[in-house]
């Protein structure tokens, strides 16, 4: 089964995979802070989507497609055009490289997140494990 990106099903599946990942759990065991991933429109996707991912103490508390970015309070927001997200999910763009190059924009406490680069890497590797169907495919 494949999950369309971006969609509620996709982010719920990511949340499920994170909860099955021992390496995510160990790398984020003290982490507290929820995210909203903002998928901005570009040539490949015409709308804006907000994907919520709850994260606490090495586990995901759930994922959801939001109607608006502030529908749930989150500590972090990462925004990028659809095409950039696709590259990250398909492993073509290292998200740290992407942030440094301003392809992904991070809003939130930078210092706190700097302590958890390995957790970020584990999330991305779980993203790659979500069987993904892209718009237009």
């Amino acid at each position: 089964m494949s999950f369309r990106f971006p969609s509620n099903e996709w982010i719920v599946e990511l949340s499920r995979l994170l909860n099955e990942s021992p390496s995510y759990e160990s790398s984020a065991k003290d982490w507290e802070g929820d995210f909203v991933f903002v998928v901005e429109p570009d040539d490949g996707f015409a709308e804006t989507a907000y994907l919520y991912l709850g994260l606490r103490h090495g586990k995901s508390t759930g994922g959801a497609l939001l109607a608006a970015p502030d529908e749930r309070p989150t500590e972090y927001r990462i925004s990028a055009p659809f095409g950039v997200w696709r590259k990250v999910i398909e492993g073509e763009l290292d998200p740290i490289q992407g942030m440094m190059m301003r392809k992904l924009k991070l809003d939130g406490n930078l210092m706190k997140i700097m302590r958890y680069p390995k957790a970020a890497k584990e999330i991305v590797s779980c993203c790659a494990d979500v069987p993904t169907m892209w718009p237009g495919n």
């Binding site: 740290i96 301003r102 930078l110 210092m111 700097m114 680069p117």
Partner: peptide
């Protein structure tokens, strides 16, 4: 720049985790 923001906050030592 996010890199310079990070250095400003934690110095070059901020790179240790990464």
């Amino acid at each position: 720049e996010i890199a310079t923001q990070a250095i400003r906050m934690a110095g070059t030592a901020g790179y240790v985790d990464m």
